[in-house]
Amino acid sequence: MLSTTDFRKGLKIEIDNTPYEIMDFLHVKPGKGGAFVRTKLKNLLTGGAIDQTFRSGEKVGKPDMETRDMQYLYHDGSGFVFMDMSTYEQVTIQDEAMKDKGGFLKDGQTVKTLFYNGQPLDIELPAAVVLQIKETEPGIKGDTVSGASKPATLETGVVINVPLFVNQGDMVKVDTRSREYLGRESQ
């Protein structure tokens, strides 16, 4: 059991058999009455956010969660297949649970996978990945009307905006959170 004194950003708690992550919290001590903790929680199963208030010292459950290193194998049409690096067991995470993270996975890439009650829940991508430009139009000199960028399709199928000097076949570094171009990588 976890007490409200243990609350911090990123802490995972369980309320009514549902795992939540604390996104923000504020300890409030009014002049009259007992202290309380106001929190903003993210539901780890659905991704939705709720506001919840707890009395100071109130106890909440600790979810049965673990993180394992898994290797991405392939996409089977309905989900992403990963292999546990220690037991070689394969698990599938459905497309809906992955949201837009699947566009940054390359075959053989190792990621941290979050499990809740033995079921895969989510993956943790690195902050930036290096991917190859599969398709982009050649940049036209002097074309700065469009903000000096053009769309480019990466080897995984994700489309991002890149500067005009980036060509097809270039290796680029991409921020996985904002989907922004960070720079070219030497091959």
Rank of each mutant, 00 (worst) to 15 (best):
V130E: 12
K134S: 06
A152R: 03
R177W: 03
V172A: 04
G102T: 10
D143V: 03
V129I: 15
Q119Y: 05
V129C: 15
Y74P: 04
K62C: 00
D170W: 03
K141V: 12
D170T: 08
M171D: 13
P151T: 06
G147T: 08
K62S: 01
M85V: 14
V130H: 03
Q94H: 11
S186V: 09
V145L: 07
A128P: 07
E96Q: 02
E135T: 00
G139R: 03
P120M: 03
M171F: 12
A128S: 15
P63Q: 01
Q109N: 10
D64R: 03
N161I: 03
Q94Y: 05
G139P: 05
P163F: 01
R184K: 14
M85F: 04
A148M: 08
A148C: 04
S186Y: 04
G118C: 01
S186N: 06
L131V: 11
L125Y: 10
Q168F: 00
L114W: 09
V81T: 12
K101W: 07
N161V: 00
K150V: 01
V159E: 15
D84V: 08
K62P: 00
I140S: 04
G183H: 02
D170H: 07
T144A: 05
T113Y: 06
V166F: 01
K112I: 10
G108K: 11
D143R: 02
E180A: 09
G103E: 13
K173D: 03
R184A: 07
A128Q: 15
S149C: 05
Q71D: 11
Y116T: 01
I140T: 07
D84M: 10
G147W: 02
V129D: 14
S86E: 14
H75I: 06
M70G: 09
G102A: 12
V158A: 15
P151D: 06
E66P: 05
T67H: 12
M83Y: 06
Y116F: 02
D64G: 01
Q90F: 04
V91I: 14
K99L: 09
D170Q: 07
P63Y: 00
E180P: 02
D143N: 06
D122K: 09
L154F: 07
Q109M: 15
V91Q: 13
E185Y: 04
Q94W: 04
L73T: 11
A148P: 03
T113F: 05
K150W: 01
G79N: 08
E137G: 04
D76G: 11
S86L: 13
F104V: 11
L131P: 09
V159G: 11
V159P: 11
K141W: 03
D122E: 12
D107H: 13
F165Q: 13
K106Q: 15
